[in-house]
Nucleic acid binder design. Structure first.
Lengths: 106, 106
DNA sequence: GATCTTGTGGACTACTTTTGACCAAAAGAA
DNA sequence: TTCTTTTGGTCAAAAGTAGTCCACAAGATC
């Protein structure tokens, strides 16, 4: 039986990728010309990665960029919902708005 | 048969409320002690309303505050998705993350 | 045409938030 | 202890946003 770690955030995902490759923060940071501390903060979700960062991570760890982008964007949505203390219903509202816009605007 | 206008954004909703009451931007702005231009921008989604604004609008137009808040928050999500050119799938990802967090954290 | 009203929108300032760098210190391994 | 890894605080700079002010365009009315 394989244990699959449930990954909840972009940062955790990133950290998991790094650990799966047995690399240290310093090593990865050096490879990508990033400040070690910045990378650490991104892994702890204390700083947001830029689009450029995400692309770098995807290239470096050989994963799909879209996979990381979606992880990042969904985090943003999660954060907003938890933070504003609303409920999951707004996801439905958002979904229908998007469908409406897509059929009526282009 | 009643024609129901499909409202897609917070701003449009707000404008519709105003027009249903046959009021001008200046009138509403004066009542709420807002700059007319700012109110116009909010109706056109060029400025984001604050929580306080939303409360004022709800009181003034006698609608549920939560209704307006949800409209506003869902707009934010819609904007993010359309803007980042991802797909509806991230709503699913976000939903499962939230459910996961709620069952595992509190 | 002159005037009034309504909504629009540019330009600007002030304010808030966020980033990324730097460095010190904690934590962990050997 | 010593070396390495990770964490965390601080801060200047950059980026983003709000709200104000003013001028203008379109439309209505006289």
């Amino acid at each position: 039986m394989t244990v699959v770690k449930k990954i909840a955030t972009f940062g955790e995902h990133l950290r998991t990728l790094r650990e799966m490759n047995s690399l240290t923060l310093r090593e990865v940071a050096a490879s990508l010309a990033l400040d070690t501390s910045l990378l650490a903060k991104i892994e702890r979700n204390e700083r947001q990665p830029t689009r450029q960062h995400i692309k770098q991570f995807a290239d470096f760890f050989k994963v799909e960029e879209k996979e990381l982008v979606d992880e990042f964007l969904s985090d943003q949505i999660v954060y907003k919902i938890l933070n504003e203390e609303t409920d999951l219903n707004i996801l439905k509202v958002a979904e229908s708005k998007i469908k409406y816009l897509k059929t009526h605007n282009g």
